[in-house]
Each structure stands twice: as structure tokens, then as C-alpha cells.
């Protein structure tokens, strides 16, 4: 399904068309769920974020405008902010880590191929610019984007001092900005 079809479905959704909303869910939920799974790493939490995102999309469909990117990118931003909120609610993360070892295998994806979907993703539009970054810069940004890692967590994951991580991300984003402008 292409961008213009997403837009048609979203416009109809904004008018209260439930069939269009259902079709929009069919067409987009797989991508939104993938984003949510990467961040939350647990199916039940990822589904909770997904549900909340679609409730918001129904209520706020008329808020979309083309300055916010493609319809799909806008929808992804909604599920991603919700998942980030859940992730930042410190207890969820702490409990998840504490209980990871004895989790019910139905809901945990820690050992499954879904864990790091982003390592075998398609090429994104922004990749033309990501290619211009130094490897540690793009790695740090990728981890922050897909896994929702904080500076501290990126620093732990990449075994690098915090100052370097902050600078990689800051400079990486600056370089992305310059590239996106050209």
C-alpha cells in the first residue's frame, strides 16, 4: 500500500469512517508493532503501546499534516513516543531487567529473532545521510532510535565513556541535519 492510500484512509478516519480505520490498521499495524517491539522487547507491553497508539490515531487523525512526513512516519512517531514513555517509566524497565531471567517465554522476546529486527531492516530514506556518519555515530543513533537507549545505556552497550557517546550522538545528528538540507 502506498503513501497516497494511507493518506486517503487517514482522511476518511478523520471523518469517523470506521471501515477506513480498520483498513488503515491492517495496512500499518505490522510496522508500528515492529517499532514498539524493538523498544519494549516484550510482546504484551508492545501490544499495549500499539493499542494506545491506535486509540490516539483515531481521535487525532485530523491533526496530521504533510509537514509531519508520511502518514506512516507520523503514526510511527505516535507509537514510538508512547513506547518511550513506557520505557522511561523506570519501574517497568527495572522489573523487566530483574525478572528477565524468569520471564514467561510467551511474552519475552529476549532470545528470539524479533529481538534485533533493526539489524536486518530495509534501507530507509534517511540512510543516504546515515551513510555519511562515522560508524560509532550511526551505531549510537541507531541504538537510541530503535532500542530507546539513553546516553548511559548506549555507553554501557558500546563499552565507551559517556562523554564520547554524547558527542557521537550530538555530532551525528548535526551531520544528519546538514546532509538532509542538501
Amino acid at each position: 500500500m502506498d503513501t497516497s492510500q494511507h493518506l486517503q484512509l487517514l482522511s476518511a478516519t478523520a471523518q469517523g469512517d470506521r471501515k477506513a480505520f480498520s483498513a488503515l490498521y491492517e495496512a500499518t499495524s505490522g510496522k508500528l508493532y515492529a517499532v514498539s517491539l524493538q523498544l519494549l522487547q516484550k510482546r504484551d507491553l508492545a501490544e499495549e503501546a500499539l493499542q494506545e497508539a491506535y486509540v490516539r490515531i483515531w481521535h487525532n487523525a485530523s491533526e496530521y499534516n504533510e509537514q509531519r512526513g508520511s502518514v506512516l512516519a507520523w503514526m510511527i512517531s505516535i507509537v514510538r513516543y508512547r513506547a518511550l514513555d513506557m520505557l522511561r517509566a523506570a519501574k517497568v524497565r527495572l522489573d523487566y531487567q530483574t525478572h528477565e531471567s524468569r520471564e514467561d517465554s510467551d511474552t519475552a522476546i529476549s532470545a528470539s529473532p524479533e529481538n534485533n529486527l533493526f539489524e536486518r531492516r530495509d534501507r530507509a530514506k534517511i540512510d543516504d545521510c546515515m551513510d555519511h556518519l562515522e560508524k560509532p555515530q550511526s551505531d549510537a543513533i541507531t541504538l537510541a532510535y530503535f532500542r530507546g537507549f539513553t546516553h548511559q545505556e548506549v555507553c554501557h552497550h558500546m563499552s565507551t565513556p559517556l562523554g564520547s557517546v554524547k558527542s557521537w550522538i550530538r555530532r551525528g545528528l548535526e551531520r544528519l541535519k546538514k546532509c538532509l538540507e542538501t
Binding site: G30, A34, Q51, A73, I76, S77
Partner: peptide, 23 residues
């Protein structure tokens, strides 16, 4: 919005995963 537009193309590049029907 400008950054959402560009950075979220990363999310679009993931392979779709099917949520359970209950969702």
C-alpha cells in the same frame, strides 16, 4: 516535525510483525 519526518523513516524500514488479533 522536521526531525520526526526524517528519523521515523528508520521505523518504516523494519520488517512488519503481526500483532495478535486481540489487539
Amino acid at each position: 516535525w522536521h526531525w520526526e519526518k526524517h528519523l521515523n523513516t528508520l521505523g518504516e524500514s523494519l520488517e512488519a510483525q503481526k500483532p495478535r488479533a486481540e489487539v
